[in-house]
C-alpha cells in the first residue's frame, strides 16, 4: 500500500494500468497473451487469411482427399497441413474451427457469468433462505464432474449448438456464483457498503455499483480458467459425437473426423486441429495463472 508520501502520479494510476504493468512483467504470461491474441486474430479473420473456404463445396476437389502436409494444390499453392477426407485444406478448416470453438466458449462463459454473478450477489446480499437455496444447489452441482452434467443435459435436451451452449452455461454458473458470493461476503462487511447503506441508497445500486466492482478480481481469474474449460469440454462433446452439428465443425469435430484415418498413418487430420486446441487452452491457462498472481491482493506490493 502506498503511504502518505506516495507521489501524486502513483495515486491517479488506474487499476487497469497497474494490472497490465504487473502482467507484462512475466515473460511466460506475455508469451501466453501474444499466442492467445494471435489465435483470436486468426479466428476472427478466418475468411481473409484462409487459403480456401473449407465449406464452399465448389472449392473442394475429392482428388485432393487425404494429402499429406506440404502437398501441392492444383493451382500452384501448398496444403501446408494436408487435407481431410473430402479434400479440404486442414489449415483453413482449423481457422474456421477455431472461430466456432472460441465463439461457443466465449458465449457460454458470458451467459454463465451474468447468471452466476447475479445469483452469487443475491445470495451474499440477501442471505437467509435465498442464500441457503442457491448455495445448496451450487454445492450439489459442483460435487459432480462437469462432463457428467454435460452428458446428462445433452441426453435430456438433445444435440445442437444452442443446446451445447445451454449445457455449458448450466455447468459454469455454479463456479461464478460460489466465487462471487465468497468475495461479496467479505466486501459486504466493509465500511464503504455500510456508508452506502447509511445514505439510503437502493439495494440494487449498492449491489451493482459498490459491491460488484470490488468482487471482480477473483471473478476475472475464474472466468479466464472457465473459458478454457468450456472450449475443452465442447471439444470433448463434439469428439464424442454429442456436441456441435457437422455443419459447424469445431476443433473437436475435426479431430473426431481424423480418428478413423489415424490407424492408417494419416495423422495430420487429427494432429493439427488438436495442436490448435492445445495452443488455445495453454495460452488461456498461462494468462489465467499470471492474472491470479496479479489480482491477488495478498501478493500486492
Amino acid at each position: 500500500m502506498s503511504g502518505a508520501e506516495a507521489p501524486v502520479a502513483r495515486a491517479v494510476e488506474s487499476p487497469a494500468k497497474r494490472v497490465f504493468a504487473d502482467f507484462v512483467a512475466n515473460p511466460t504470461a506475455v508469451f501466453g497473451l501474444a499466442l492467445l491474441a494471435l489465435i483470436v486474430l486468426l479466428a476472427v479473420l478466418a475468411p481473409l487469411v484462409s487459403p480456401q473456404n473449407p465449406y464452399d463445396l465448389a472449392q473442394l476437389d475429392v482428388m485432393d482427399a487425404r494429402l499429406p502436409p506440404g502437398s501441392a494444390t492444383a493451382d500452384g499453392g501448398t496444403f501446408w497441413l494436408g487435407t481431410d477426407d473430402q479434400g479440404r485444406d486442414m489449415l483453413s478448416a482449423i481457422f474456421y474451427g477455431l472461430r466456432i470453438s472460441l465463439m461457443v466458449g466465449a458465449t457460454s462463459t458470458a451467459f454463465a457469468l451474468v447468471i452466476g454473478l447475479t445469483m452469487g450477489l443475491c445470495a451474499a446480499y440477501f442471505g437467509g433462505r435465498v442464500e441457503t437455496l442457491i448455495m445448496r444447489v451450487v454445492d450439489i452441482q459442483l460435487s459432480f464432474p462437469a462432463i457428467l452434467i454435460a452428458l446428462i443435459l445433452i441426453a435430456v435436451l438433445g444435440q445442437g449448438t444452442g443446446k451445447v451452449i445451454a449445457a455449458l452455461v448450466t455447468i459454469q454458473w455454479a463456479y461464478y456464483a460460489r466465487t462471487v458470493r465468497g468475495a461479496a461476503l467479505v466486501e459486504k462487511r466493509k465500511e464503504y457498503v455500510e456508508a452506502a447503506r447509511c445514505l439510503a441508497l437502493p439495494p440494487v445500486r449498492i449491489v451493482f455499483r459498490h459491491l460488484l466492482p470490488n468482487c471482480l478480481p477473483p471473478l476475472i481469474v475464474v472466468a479466464t480458467v472457465q473459458v478454457a474449460a468450456a472450449i475443452a469440454l465442447e471439444a470433448t462433446l463434439s469428439f464424442l459425437g454429442l456436441g456441435l452439428p457437422i455443419t459447424e465443425p469445431s476443433l473437436g469435430l475435426l479431430i473426431a473426423n481424423g480418428y478413423q484415418y489415424l490407424l492408417s498413418g494419416k495423422y495430420w487430420i487429427s494432429f493439427f486441429p488438436g495442436l490448435a486446441l492445445l495452443a488455445t487452452i495453454v495460452s488461456i491457462n498461462l494468462c489465467a495463472d499470471q492474472l491470479r498472481d496479479v489480482l491477488n491482493p495478498r501478493l500486492q506490493r
Binding site: 495423422y267 494432429f271 488438436g274
Partner: peptide
C-alpha cells in the same frame, strides 16, 4: 503439470494410439 491440465484427454489418447500403436506398433489400440 500445467500441460497435463491443458491437454484435451481425447486428443492425447489419439496421439498415444498414433505413436505406440501405429508408428511403433508396440501396444494394441
Amino acid at each position: 503439470s500445467i500441460l497435463g491440465f491443458s491437454l484435451p484427454t481425447f486428443w492425447v489418447g489419439l496421439m498415444l494410439i498414433m505413436v505406440f500403436s501405429v508408428m511403433l506398433g508396440w501396444l494394441p489400440s
